[in-house]
Design a protein around this nucleic acid. Structure first.
Length: 877
RNA sequence: GCCCGGGUGGCGAAACCGGUAGACGCGGGCGACUUAAAAUCGCCUGGCCAAGAGCCGUGCAGGUUCGAAUCCUGCCCCGGGUACCA
């Protein structure tokens, strides 16, 4: 028997658990390192192969930093509230708590089987009342600071299902399950005033060690823009006034019409008699379209004239007021002044509806398209001749003097819709009085626990699941004795993940969400690793809460995550076809279609005859591969399937579990393989081609140290005394290379350097103990089980988790000579070897002395000679 | 649509700041060992042809530069996000 992970890995996992090897305490004398994974939602599908990628990366860092003397906080927990457990409860009647408990147990077992060095004594579960007690506490602080308020906000209401749907559950205006119509209807909701923190969220991005694209996405998401608010009066409607925001007040003379969002409150008031019906019909249709579709510019421009006119304040011209769904109610003021000459969407709209286009900034041709750049004002009265910047300033002065508007800043960022009409979330810690007053649940009554239910559906009357708990909903106000009603909503899943990184620092504190000592020592997070799909929302929400906690004095750093790394997504394969069974009823009449027979119409797939279709996804064995490489529906082989590569998800069925891989190759091979696949940040579809390579590497490492002697696995005899010079140089290069790569999180190249080191050691005669131990220590963060086993066999009694990381002897890294490429006119023609300290003059001479170079120069005099230190010489001639 | 990222051999990739394209691994080929196979070890493996001191080659088309996978412009394809999936 050779290397056998099925023996080694469980042994060491038990060893670490029993010895609490990775348990950490606050140790002020030691430098700390807090390395955090984005904790998972424990879904019923279990871990997929994408999870271990990020977790392996952070685990390598955690182990590496421990060996370099840091006190490492490396925790794991569960973001366990969420939609799937509740859906499952509705389908099966199983309490979400039970589903969640089972899923967590499964996730923990899978995660443990990979040998991660988590401090499990700090495990967190967001659905644990001891945890969400503090989520509720934070909400109360937000409320008391005026950062939580109630408002009427449109939601995806599905009358047939009697419930509000997540955007994901709505496809092209119909529910994903059953294809029932969905409309946007306003509902009273909790909102968090994240916009009050917009500027700080923007400014503090500055000092963070985050990938630049993520910073940019956050910046764009916040979308600060400076401009003006302008008020237009409405002709024949004394009291009506349309307020708009524009970044280009200098183009006000070019405003030839206005557009209101279909939901705008003025629409009903100002629509003229003869347009009323058309306006109502359009508004009704808009309610059925998703915001995403409405923002898509490629869509045909639609809109309806309201019959009303506004007065342009600069010239008192009557301009028509339209409604159109490209103007969104939730952004800005829900109304725009349209300047078709200088805004692309307005231009297209004006063209489509034959509205006037006026040039007010010179520099383009407004007949051909909108000119959105800067220039100088024309056709603009008192602005004429002014360059754009001055024209903006001048117009602002005029607006303020005339009382028609003022300078303003708006943000694309909207306040955060913070309530859900669901069961499986944190209850709001407050109650409502008849008169609308809100009483916070007293601190001693926290946590306010979820009521027990056995039916998790919304009620037919549109009540939320919580409203089924009649007794729970009713509460007596201890002060006045009057009866209050608890809030019928729960918090969104984001809530628990907004502050979990703080709780890991002090998970069992019953007096506070975190002690000042723990917070001062451990925070901020030094390295945060997770998927790029969280680039905006989770990270922005968590930063917002952190800043509120900063203002409350709970935390001392303005930002929670100092360094952020996004691991790439591991994608899965599925195989797509379409059918016309929109209501998911099945049966014999269903027609099926291959992709090539289907056209996309916006979000709606259609057959050649115009019939609406629905996409379906299969995975093997329902999808079968033919000998010609095509994929076919197993039951309907006439249907050719289209291969699609996407994020792994239940809806696609393309989730791949790591369990089988671990069983076959071992956890160390799995870890190494995921790291060896390519750079951590890169997306890639999952495949196990090539996992043999890292497994073979581990076997080679094993055989380098262990030999079979009469069926007994024993340590090879190691050479006595110190390493040979060649061995020492090889080891020094490996140490330097691996250390640099781990510091920069280049795990793939670190592994390749270890492969080279191992292979070349074999060619250098009897192995020295020093080289052997160096190999094991360098491998330890990446393949910890086999490394621990070899370390023990090398005669050490303690785990190597806290051994010192090897240091390279700088003197051994110096080379005596250097090889330089020699180019003639940029093409490589020869190579020369010169002393490492050769000066430029001798390098030139050596290059020109090359026969091959002379041949290619064909007698020409070199016009120019470029020497790049350590790299090459380029002779131009 | 908008925002972000990616595209290099048959495949995963490397090339870190504009300086020798393809390290390392998979797959494939040849050889050694073996009665044989597996395992292991060694060598070869971007394409083309007239086979050279040759030409071409990093999604496509251009540009900047002594020199471009890397920088710039335009385009194509793929992935992620798009505020109630997480």
């Amino acid at each position: 028997m050779a290397y056998d992970p099925s023996q080694i890995e469980p042994f060491w996992q038990r060893y670490w658990r029993e010895h609490e090897t990775f348990r950490v305490e606050l140790e002020p004398s030691k430098p700390k390192y807090y390395v955090l994974d984005m904790f998972p939602y424990p879904s019923g599908e279990g871990l997929h192969v994408g999870h271990p990628e990020g977790y392996t990366a952070t685990d390598i860092l955690a182990r590496f930093k421990r060996m370099r003397g840091f006190n490492v906080l490396h925790p794991m927990g569960w973001d366990a509230f969420g939609l799937p457990a509740e859906q499952h409860a509705i389908d099966t009647g199983t309490h979400p708590r039970e589903t969640t408990r089972r899923n967590i147990a499964n996730f923990r077992k899978q995660i443990e089987s990979l040998g991660f060095s988590y401090d499990w004594s700090r495990e967190i579960d967001t659905t644990d009342p001891d945890y969400y007690r503090w989520t509720q506490w934070i909400f109360q602080q937000l409320y008391e600071r005026g950062l939580a308020y109630e408002a009427e906000v449109p939601v995806n209401w599905c009358p047939a299902l009697g419930t509000v749907l997540a955007n994901e559950e709505v496809i092209d205006g119909k529910s994903e399950r059953g294809g029932h119509p969905v409309e946007r209807v306003p509902m009273r909701q909790w909102m968090l005033r994240i916009t009050a923190y917009a500027d700080r969220l923007l400014e503090d991005l500055e000092g963070l060690d985050w990938p630049e694209p993520i910073v940019k996405m956050q910046r764009d998401w916040i979308g600060r823009s400076e401009g003006a608010r302008v008020r237009f009066s409405v002709a024949d409607h004394e009291s009506a006034e349309i307020e708009v925001f524009t970044t280009r007040p200098d183009t006000l003379f070019g405003a030839t019409y206005m557009v209101l969002a279909p939901e705008h409150e003025l629409v009903a008031r100002i629509a003229s008699e003869d347009q009323r019906a058309a306006v109502a019909a359009y508004a009704e249709a808009a309610r059925r379209r998703s915001e995403r579709l409405r923002m898509a510019e490629k869509q045909e421009k639609t809109g309806v004239f309201t019959g009303a006119y506004a007065l342009n304040p600069v010239n008192d011209e009557r301009i028509p007021v339209w409604i159109a769904d490209y103007v969104l109610a939730g952004y800005g003021t829900g109304a725009i002044m349209a300047v078709p000459g200088h805004d692309t969407r307005d231009w297209e709209f004006a063209r489509h509806f034959d509205l006037p286009i006026v040039e007010v900034v010179s520099g383009g041709d407004v007949e051909e398209g909108a000119f959105v750049g800067e220039g100088s004002s024309v056709n603009s009265g008192f602005l004429d001749g002014l360059p754009t910047a001055d024209a903006k300033r001048r117009m602002l002065e005029w607006l303020e003097e005339a009382g028609h508007g003022e300078a303003a800043v708006t943000y694309k960022l909207r306040d955060w819709l913070f309530s859900r009409q669901r069961y499986w979330g944190e209850p709001f810690p407050l109650a409502h009085a008849e008169d609308g007053a809100i009483e916070l649940t007293p601190d001693v009554e926290l946590p306010l626990e979820l009521p027990e239910l056995d039916d998790f559906r919304p009620s037919e009357s549109g009540d939320t699941p919580l409203e089924r708990a009649v007794d729970w909903m009713r509460v007596e106000d201890p002060a006045t004795g009057r009866t209050l009603r608890r809030d019928r909503n729960t918090m969104p899943q984001w809530a628990g993940s907004c502050w979990y990184y703080l709780r890991f620092c002090d998970p069992h504190n019953t007096q506070a969400l975190i002690s000042p000592e723990a917070e001062r020592y451990w925070m901020p997070v030094d390295l945060y690793v997770g998927g790029a799909e969280h680039a905006v929302l989770h990270l922005l929400y968590a930063r917002f809460w952190h800043k509120v906690l900063y203002d409350l004095g709970v935390v001392h750093s303005p930002e929670p995550f100092q360094k952020l790394v996004n691991q790439g997504m591991i994608l899965g394969y599925s195989y797509r076809y379409y059918d016309d069974d929109l209501a998911d009823e099945g049966g014999p009449d269903v027609s099926r279609f291959s992709s090539r027979e289907v056209e996309e119409d916006g979000e709606t797939p259609r057959a050649a005859d115009g019939r609406e279709l629905k996409a379906r996804w299969l995975v093997p064995p329902e999808a079968q591969r033919e000998t010609d490489g095509s994929w076919r529906h197993a039951e309907h082989p006439e249907i050719e399937l289209e291969e699609v590569v996407e994020k792994m998800s239940k809806s696609r069925g393309n989730v791949v579990s790591p369990d089988a891989v671990i069983a076959e190759f071992g956890a160390d091979s799995m870890r190494l393989y995921e790291m060896f696949l390519g750079p951590l940040e890169k997306d890639a579809p999952w495949s196990v081609d090539g996992i043999q390579g890292v497994r073979r590497f581990l076997e080679r490492v094993w055989r380098t140290l262990i030999e079979d002697s009469d069926g007994e696995e024993v340590l090879r005899e190691l050479s006595t005394g110190s390493s040979s010079r060649d061995q020492a140089r090889l080891a020094a290069r490996a140490v330097q290379g691996v250390t640099d790569d781990l510091d920069a999180m280049r795990f793939n190249t670190a592994i390749s350097k270890l492969m080279v080191y191992t292979r070349e050691l074999a060619g250098l005669g009897p192995l020295s103990r020093e080289c052997a131990e160096t190999l094991v220590l360098l491998l330890a963060p990446m393949a910890p089980h086999v490394s621990e086993e070899l370390w023990r066999r090398l005669g050490h009694e303690q785990s190597l988790a806290y051994e010192s990381w090897p240091v390279a002897d700088a003197a051994l890294l110096v080379e005596a000579t250097q090889r330089l490429a020699v180019q003639v006119n940029g093409k490589r023609r020869d190579e020369i070897e010169v002393p490492a300290d050769a000066d430029e003059e001798s390098i030139r001479a050596a290059a020109l002395a090359s026969e091959k170079v002379q041949k290619h120069l064909q007698g020409r005099e070199p016009r120019k000679l470029i020497v790049v230190a350590g790299r090459l010489v380029n002779i131009v001639g």
